[in-house]
Nucleic acid binder design. Sequence first.
DNA 1: AGAAGTACCGGGAACGCTTTCGCAACCGGT
DNA 2: ACCGGTTGCGAAAGCGTTCCCGGTACTTCT
Lengths: 389, 389
Amino acid sequence: MIKCVKCSDVDAIAKAGIIRGKQRYYCGRCDYYFTLPSLEVPLVAVSSKKHQPTIVDIARELQISKSTVSRALHGHSDINEETRKAVLDVAKKLDYQPNLLAYGLAKSKSLTIGIIVPEFINSFFPYVIIGAQEIANPAGYHVLICQSNESYQTEIDNTNVLMSSRVDGILVSLTGKTPNVDHFRKFERAGIPIVYFNRVTTDVCASKVIVDDYDGAYKGVQHLIQNGCTRIAHIAGPQNLQICKDRLQGYQDALLHHGMEINESLIIYHDLNPESALHCAQHLLDLPARPDGLFALNDPAAIATMQVAKEKGIRIPEELAVVGFSNEPTSALVEPGLTTLAQPMAEIGKTAVNLLFKQMNDVSDCFIPETKILKTTLIVRKSSLKKQF
Amino acid sequence: MIKCVKCSDVDAIAKAGIIRGKQRYYCGRCDYYFTLPSLEVPLVAVSSKKHQPTIVDIARELQISKSTVSRALHGHSDINEETRKAVLDVAKKLDYQPNLLAYGLAKSKSLTIGIIVPEFINSFFPYVIIGAQEIANPAGYHVLICQSNESYQTEIDNTNVLMSSRVDGILVSLTGKTPNVDHFRKFERAGIPIVYFNRVTTDVCASKVIVDDYDGAYKGVQHLIQNGCTRIAHIAGPQNLQICKDRLQGYQDALLHHGMEINESLIIYHDLNPESALHCAQHLLDLPARPDGLFALNDPAAIATMQVAKEKGIRIPEELAVVGFSNEPTSALVEPGLTTLAQPMAEIGKTAVNLLFKQMNDVSDCFIPETKILKTTLIVRKSSLKKQF
DNA sequence: AGAAGTACCGGGAACGCTTTCGCAACCGGT
DNA sequence: ACCGGTTGCGAAAGCGTTCCCGGTACTTCT
């Protein structure tokens, strides 16, 4: 018979509906509803996910507490050398792998740094990422890579993913379409450091790693001038990016300082999508008064132009001298080799992570952002040597 | 005066050492040691890490329980529409971002899939990764990218990182040096599905995504033969990889089926490190009886050979016809354009993730691995058109 | 009217780890 | 004998979720 779980009465019990498939009872004496505890043996859990060893497993095996295991695994001081060895042995025996999720939850840090890049098809960003990993990994951090795919919305989505992942810091190179950096403010609010690299904006107060774009552009254009170019075009980038502004400025100043005029029709704006590069090239090469020199804001754009020129039968560098920017490996492979401004790609990644770590370890409440400016080097290849012809 | 915390006696109290800077007492009556609870106000926590809003914050704001908030955020059924709206509003107001670490811990799944690639400097793997993300992201998963850097040890380290991160599944392309896949057994033991792609081995029973390497190689070599090559060399890869074996076999069979002999001296083994490609090229082109055709196991090796040939003044394709494998974008840019076997790179990534998901959702205890074989297409460019000269 | 069913919501354990606090058992110098 | 100090370890409270139970207050059948 059914007994009330409170008063153990039998007579005052009435059925009171079914709840989640279980019979429910009501004790009129106690004015109390209840269901009977289920006795079902949870049929052997056939979950394919097997149990991963935890510190509790280690503790149980050694008949010690999990606190001690935790201490042992982290080289903590308050621990006997023998106990530590025993723990390490068992850990190895069980093939214990710490659960980073639990660790992160407990410590409120994920040992992860996020990195948002616009793309990683060209080699520039991969090299930066490799540089970043070279510093981050030995320090126990791993890198969560997101690509915004040159889309503002995707960039926003990426920030949310990184936020949810509770990354300890982030590295960002913006898209050409990012109008503002409001979507990064949440990181500031949460006290998560950000370092912008390569594609940065002016309107943000944060650490940055860039190269001397103005100087690089200046050197590149000067090189074209010295090679006898008189009509030098520029494939510029979106002007929301500091980097593109600077390269444009370098281009313009180089012209002016060498007594040449700035011809707006020779400046065309690339939105950084691959197809756009071809359009820019088409446009420039179809100009009635065709340029005889080109400074492109990056190697892919320069190479695209070379391809289009080739199709049109325009000889490089005789009829068109070309200079790119970045010195991606491909630029050495195209024919003729592309003259370009080498960026220290891995160095950028390394510097960015170092800056990030600096900020992460900064305890003072007022961190002062730092901007590191790396140098570019002009790599001269055939594509610009117009003079020799 | 000091009172015993148990008996409140004052007289039997004696000092009993200092512990962690705090005075410790001993009550002779109770035979009990104790320290006084510290009254210190924890001076304003100046941790730069600000508190991130949690479901408890939302719950408090609305005076409801966190269970309800959780239900609301997940579109659970047992929830009133108004309550849900209210929760969503507050969540937005507080800029709530779920904590993936806590989620992962509670659900025993991280919503992350790991991917180990040997490198991502060349575009092949980036394209595969993009394909993978295209399927994984919409499904709510994100991708943790590791590069083994063509090192066996790093590959092992990567497996441990992914294990610790409690990824829900992994995609792997092996290094050329991986002698066995024992380091992946732990995933099987833990019930974490693996899909191998591109670089796989024979000695493992798991799902795989590959292209028809044998067929591709055969087509490539046949194409060289049809273009009048009589001494066709092959830059082969490490024979621990199925893919390399198959391409070698395709090469050999194509020769045999066309009545040509296999000349061991024309086969050279590339360890897949970038420098090694140049060595292979050097060696082949320095051969007393130089080959007049080359089938390289991948585009970078083919392109490296073209570079070396160029330096040596060997004309392509007149003196050396070249065929690569993969159709990386660079192969269209080099001069002459590289004939190659196009692989559906993004498709490989997509297929791999789909296979992974299939396995992740498989409830039967005996999952039957599947191997998907995609097709290659011969892309003919100038590098192989020897006949026309 | 009583039994059955429904709609929502709250309590609390669990996930695996770190960390603080404090106990027990020492040792050594007055 | 007493006080000061040290060493090693355990208990338990979180960290932010999910989810199983079950409770309350209804409505809807017989």
